[in-house]
Amino acid sequence: MKYLLGMAMLLIVATVAAQDSLRFIAVPAGSYVVGAKNFPLNPKRTVPLAAFRIAVTEVTNAQFAAFVQATGYVTDAQRRHNAMVFEPGLKEFRWLEDSTAYWEYPNGVSRGDISAKMDHPVTCISFADAQAYCNWSGCRLPTLDEWEVAARAGSDTRYFWGGDRDAITAYANVWLGHDHLSADTADGYMYTAPVAHFKPNPWGLYDVYGNVFEFCEGRTALDKPNSTQAHARGGSWWCSKNSCSFFNSVDIGNIHRHASFSNLGFRVVKAN
């Protein structure tokens, strides 16, 4: 009994610690314009939203480690040994399957662990893994609309600063090379960067574009009725102007719900 109580206390302490290390901003209830004209995947429309709080930063390796330590959770990549990793030299949109990769070794054992990257966003986790973290932490993933409203920070343009794509370098860790045949560290990072390293959006959210694609709940207008696809938004360190370029407030990506890539992560929200 004492042992059980001790374990329960440990779990509670770890949960509180993980949540304490996340800062949130409040988004008031209201009607918000999302989407873009002539874009059926995410058409321009007004959506009503209840108040919510969204994390200022993406969930980090340290925060995910607290979850794993408290629960013993085993990720999809650890069970299935099918994570997808990146190294320079690959053709566009090509990744390597690496049976050794999981969140502690997001690009495989041969490419190093996260011990010096505990303040980087957790990656190599699947949509299902992100949901497990949320269940444990008392949070949830943002809906597609919540994510977009927070990313837009009141703007009605493709980027929260306007329409000039080249301004991305101040705000986001993205791929600045023309292709992925050689490494790109022009912004200081080839893979992930520490969260909150680049400038925030006007509401104080960091890395809404770039760093990692962020899993969201919900369905797009184009999802099949029985689709089990997950969605992620905001682009990632892999995304370049020429390939993907999803580092904006409009695009929505599709991903298998059990796929684990080293450019996929998440941030969380709470009801107000």
């Binding site: 059926p40 949109f93 694609f213 992620a232 599709n254 991903i255 796929a259």
Partner: peptide, 29 residues
Amino acid sequence: TYAQNCDAVPPVMDENKKIFSRIPSSFGD
């Protein structure tokens, strides 16, 4: 294996009158 995120391509008007820069990917996810 899994394809990476950011696969969705919006439909376009007059698709039959356009020569795209890239062929569509065949296998979705």
